[in-house]
């Protein structure tokens, strides 16, 4: 997994690329530390560059949601690819996150 954070008036966006797998928990945790440290009311995760995500990726997104919720921060998931979107739908993540499809 690779990531960068883009700041804008709408809030910071975590841009993910490559794959999001079980082995990327630590780097993902570091990324959300930085993301939430912005202390903006909304954050987004741009998933367009994510070619693959396994079920562990769902757990990481749940961690982000939980930590953001505790900090009073809203989370949106942006532009998931077809495969990633299928996984999000399988887990009914539309009921947990705002998902903006590209």
């Amino acid at each position: 997994m690779k990531y960068r954070i883009i700041d804008s008036d709408a809030g910071p966006t975590l841009v993910l690329s490559d794959q999001l797998l079980f082995d990327h928990r630590d780097i993902f945790d570091t990324a959300i530390d930085k993301l939430l440290a912005r202390k903006q009311p909304f954050v987004a995760v741009d998933m367009a560059g994510l070619t693959y995500m396994d079920s562990a990726g769902l757990g990481m997104l749940l961690t982000l949601r939980d930590r953001a919720e505790h900090a009073g921060i809203g989370v949106s998931l942006l532009r998931p690819s077809k495969d990633v979107a299928e996984l999000l739908d399988l887990a009914c993540f539309g009921s947990l996150f705002t998902i903006e499809r590209g």
């Binding site: 887990a91 009914c92 947990l96």
Partner: peptide, 10 residues
Amino acid sequence: DGAGLPLGVS
């Protein structure tokens, strides 16, 4: 169809 919210989340 296997869709459903994972257990332990809500």
